[in-house]
Amino acid sequence: MAGAAPGGASRSEIYRGNGPRLMLPIWVFIGIFLVMPVVMMAVHSFLTKEFRGGVIWEFTFAAYDQFFFDRGLFGDEPPKIEWTYIGIFWRSIWQAGLATVFSLLIGFPTAWFIATRKPNVRPGWLFLITIPYWVNLLIRTVSMKFLIRDTGPLNEFLLWSGVISEPLSLVNTNFAVQLGLFYSYLPFMVLPVYAAVERYDFSLSEAAADLYSDNWTTLRLVILPVVKPGIVAGCILVFVPSLGAFLAPDLLGGAKTFMIGSLIEEQFKGAAGNWPFGAAAAMILLAIVLGVLLLHAHAQTRVER
């Protein structure tokens, strides 16, 4: 066969660098470590729970039923909607959404600042953004708790300066959880937004100003729409892990701030756990996240049509 290189790939494929076999290792990896766990989780969500933790291989919808419906203590009453878990999910979505909004409000100006520095100092600024990641997330979250607790430095300082007369109870509040989420995931907002702003052609802003836009109008009508892909990526990267986070809600929150991540975590801990229920909650979380992503992809293709 003239022109064909040994091994099946055509010469053009080799020289244009589009050999599909390059993807083989990652396909194998994803197959084993991503697809299989998800499949296992899906299967487990339809199995019967075993009391010492674990499962009995008997097919049932019990886990999903437990999530959505309340059939009384003995399971013999007519089904009512079970609000406990829906409430937890709703609260998680709300918290993750807030964390995303705050990250955007703080992250966008930060990314803008870095992207508008001279090219030779930008890597330095980006490096500073990544410094918190040198410390384990657990340690950082615990430190946050020490900082904001009633006798922590923050309250001590506020008391000393006379701004407050009694310590603020910050730990175990939504505020504390919010702070933890925001702090954990802020860089995930900064980096993609930075990448988008860095590519932004500033002559577009000049063109907008030339065509009678003040700065806010330029931001709204030109800058934000053009860097939107970076903002959307940042929002997804903050929202999705915030939604399933369990460290911040566990350590900084209390019973009232219980989030999906903690609910799922609990089902797999010790003898009190309920594997099928945890798996079902995880599947529902997965469905929500996929729903959000599909909605976004759909909106995107409509715009680019």
């Binding site: 052609d201 002559s203 577009l204 000049e206 063109a207 907008a208 100003a209 030339d210 065509l211 009678y212 836009s213 003040d214 030109v222 729409p225 053009v226 939107k228």
Partner: peptide, 20 residues
């Protein structure tokens, strides 16, 4: 005056058309 208050318009070298 700032640019947006001047009744002059510019054709930019690389055009600077709004891509979106």
């Amino acid at each position: 005056l700032p640019p947006h208050k001047r009744p002059v318009n510019t054709v930019f070298q690389q055009y600077a058309l709004f891509p979106h």
